[in-house]
Design a protein around this nucleic acid. Structure first.
Lengths: 245, 245
DNA sequence: TTAATAAGACGCGAAATGGATATAAGGGTG
DNA sequence: CACCCTTATATCCATTTCGCGTCTTATTAA
């Protein structure tokens, strides 16, 4: 049977279809570390383990719409930067049924993250511990604010690892760092986000030069308040990035 | 209804489920240009347009296994570098039914590409024309060897565009370029691959330095044959990349 | 033997980077 | 109010990387 004949003769109604779900990685930077919001599973399988908030994709709903709906349902949130990550389709990834899961990550500034935690008390804050460097990749561990390990359900440790990997790769050519910051932020705060995602310390003058030369930042002239030392200037993301002058 | 209750009460059997397919972007570099293998659709919808080879995912088969099976069925090929690209889930992307498609790209050296074309005569070679630069992204156009436009079916122009975008991003930190070359290759051939993917000309001495310093190449001491001028040295990919000395 | 062609080596100035140091600007303290 | 403490911001310098032109080398064809 050739490929064309196969396609022609195939009737999707004849075959059993998998369920399709979206799982959401709600991420932020908390105390200089990458963090995510997890749910404690209260039934089998993986009872007591921690999972990502998710939901099934309806027949008349796009993947992005499903992710958006779950974001609203689980985190009481109607707008956030989110992006499709990867689709997990191992046959036995969920022992209950064949469920293919499309992973999404959503990036939240710390203030929105706290709001989500307040609005949805079933969510738990987890610090992500990345046991590898650079672009190596692999699973990550989750840890509670008290430092206890939070064992992850299903293949969610891999999803979280892939999210970190993706963030590292996109950090310096995309705007993902800005999605993790409030509208106005200092260069130090931006550097903290970069360091938290990359897991390494960066050189301050070099970072500052790189960011300002990239032409994606706009100085506001305003300064932060409340510091008991010299206040830093506040920047915002520039809508139309300009070439360096 | 809280998120947890939603999950608990949800029975996947109650809801209509979408079909899940994989679509394969079989790519290579032909005449210094990125190229892909397409199928001409001989029925509605999009009759006469050109599509990516694909197939449905069986209930007891992982996504990777489905991609591998389609690769074997459509391109008569049992091993190739392939990687999941993105999952396309717009509700109306296929007017026949709700089909969520997981896009994969497979990278083939030119020789394997020609074999695939011979072994599967229903496949057509298409040059990819990328109408944007750098990391902009967007759809791409396909063109036959004779230069005629090959209009693409469904959302396949977007899939091809995303594949180019992904390749550009991964080019210098991953081994994707090697998957497009035979085991032994010259530095010029490696540069040609980079230039074809990036769509820009690169500086020769700088490229050479960068590649050799990266420690991912191994000189064989052998030289290419058949050239009517100075033959270039042949290199191979080094298994265990070493730091630069 | 010579011409043609492309590989590969070398060198130089520009640009980017890492790191240290100096100066500025706030609030807190006496 | 003078001084101190802390962090932001600016400047400088050495090192590395990068772009780019040029020179030499290896091979075939004439």
């Amino acid at each position: 049977m050739t490929g064309v004949e196969f396609l022609r003769s195939y009737d999707p109604e004849e075959y059993e279809r998998p369920s399709v779900a979206v799982d959401l990685i709600l991420m932020s930077i908390v105390h200089g570390k990458p963090a995510a919001l997890l749910l404690r599973r209260d039934e089998h399988p993986d009872l007591g383990r921690w999972s990502l908030p998710g939901g099934f994709v309806a027949i008349d709903e796009s993947l992005d719409a499903a992710a958006s709906r779950v974001l609203a349902a689980k985190a009481r949130m109607t707008d956030a930067y989110f992006e499709q990550l990867y689709t997990f389709g191992a046959v036995d990834r969920d022992p209950r049924a064949r469920i293919i899961s499309v992973g999404y990550f959503a990036l939240l500034p710390p203030a929105r993250f706290s709001e989500a935690l307040k609005g949805a008390p079933e969510l738990t804050l987890a610090e992500l511990v990345v046991p590898w460097e650079g672009e190596t990749g692999g699973a990550v561990k989750a840890r509670s604010a008290e430092g206890d390990a939070l064992p992850l359900a299903f293949d969610h440790a891999d999803m979280l690892g892939l999210a970190i990997l993706r963030l590292r790769g996109k950090l310096d050519y995309s705007g993902v760092a800005f999605a993790l910051l409030p509208e106005l932020f200092t260069l130090r705060a931006l550097q903290d986000v970069h360091e938290a995602i990359l897991g390494v310390r960066l050189n301050k003058p070099a970072f500052r030069r790189r960011m300002l030369d990239a032409g994606r930042l706009e100085a506001t002239g305003e300064r932060e308040t409340g510091a008991s030392f010299r206040p830093a200037e506040l920047y915002r993301r520039r809508k139309n990035p300009q070439a360096k002058e």
